[in-house]
Simulated scan of single mutants.
Amino acid sequence: MENKLKVAFYGSSLVSAYWNGAATYYRGIIKELSRLGYQVAFYEPDAYERQQHRDIPDPEWAKVVVYDNNEESAFKVLAEAAHADIVIKASGVGVFDELLEEQVLKLRKENQLVIFWDVDAPATLERMTNNPADPFRELVPQYDMVLTYGGGQPVIDAYTAFGAKRCIPVYNALDPETHHPVSEDARFACDLAFLGNRLPDREARVEEFFLKAAGKLPEQKFKIGGSGWGDKPMTENVEYVGHVYTKDHNAFNCTPKAVLNISRDSMAKMGFSPATRVFEAAGAGACIITDYWLGIDFFFEPGKEILVAASGDEVAEILRNLSVEEAKAIGEAAKERVLRSHTYEHRAKEVQKLFSAHFQLLNISEV
């Protein structure tokens, strides 16, 4: 059955990964939804210099509408949701979030499916828990469903407690067309590399898992990429390579002996929240060392497809004993696992089932 449904998606950015870790997640999901027949319009604000740091041109598989960073422009793009069958407001747009979250519900049309897609559920839930006056608390039960970037049963239970009609995790995954093995690049040659923006709820864990490990292994080379690390004190064996554009992610993942995944505090605490970069690195055949979080074995087999460390000391110990041959074997096993079980094609089909089930309940055909 060919799908003709129109989707209005309000998010941070589809075309820029600058200060926007969810970009590749949006791209992977939306590209595959397009292949399933959905017509997606993505509305993103001109904010945080994202348009000046684009990674991709406007794609063929979505209509991208960039609006000015003011309330009038926000209302203008909100009005376009009237033409959509499905309206999605993502968390963390960065500007006018409260306005967008409220208005997609106020402006909803009859039989529209209105979804809140939380790409940082642990942080949203913590915010609502700590602030009884948070305006989003009243809105949660009004959405037809809440989709989340991850979080497993703890996130489902927490959102249900806030009155969500339905909460379903849609995990990160791999787009094998964009993340895959490439030739090594001397810019990224090292023993261990980490890629991630400098954020308040990540920094202490970067100090523990990455910088502490580097301090214990002065004979090994470490590289860190992402925005905001320029003035961070680091040992001499650590090189800061700045913002790494998505076109360089494959080389960044393929070249080092191993790459490090470090969860943000809230995601490590909640569990079942693998970062997009884990799947991207696995797709490139990288040997991944990750900090421990509940649910790792749901995605990868520890010791065979991924290496797990509970501290910076353990990261250093793993690196001391990790041969190039062993690293390559682990990376290859990880690549085979994601291609088999964790691509965006898999995820989009899950989302399509959710959409279809909703409209079937309303006795509305998707054609």
Rank of each mutant, 00 (worst) to 15 (best):
T148P: 06
Y171M: 06
G230A: 15
Y159M: 11
P169D: 09
L147H: 01
G225E: 11
G215A: 10
A173I: 09
A186D: 12
V206Q: 00
N197E: 13
P200S: 14
D157M: 02
K212P: 00
I224N: 03
R202T: 12
F162T: 04
E219F: 01
K212M: 08
D157N: 14
V241N: 09
A189I: 01
H243C: 00
A189L: 11
G152N: 11
I224G: 08
K216T: 04
G226K: 04
K165E: 07
S227L: 13
F209H: 13
H180I: 01
E207A: 13
W229N: 11
I224M: 14
T178Q: 12
E208A: 06
R187G: 06
E219R: 13
L174Q: 12
K216W: 01
G151R: 08
F194A: 01
E207N: 13
W229F: 12
L199N: 04
L192F: 02
T178S: 10
K221Q: 15
T148I: 07
I168H: 11
G242R: 08
Y149R: 05
V238R: 05
L192E: 05
F188G: 04
R166I: 03
K232S: 08
Q220R: 15
V146T: 14
P233W: 07
G225C: 09
D231F: 02
N172Y: 04
P233G: 11
I156Y: 00
P181E: 04
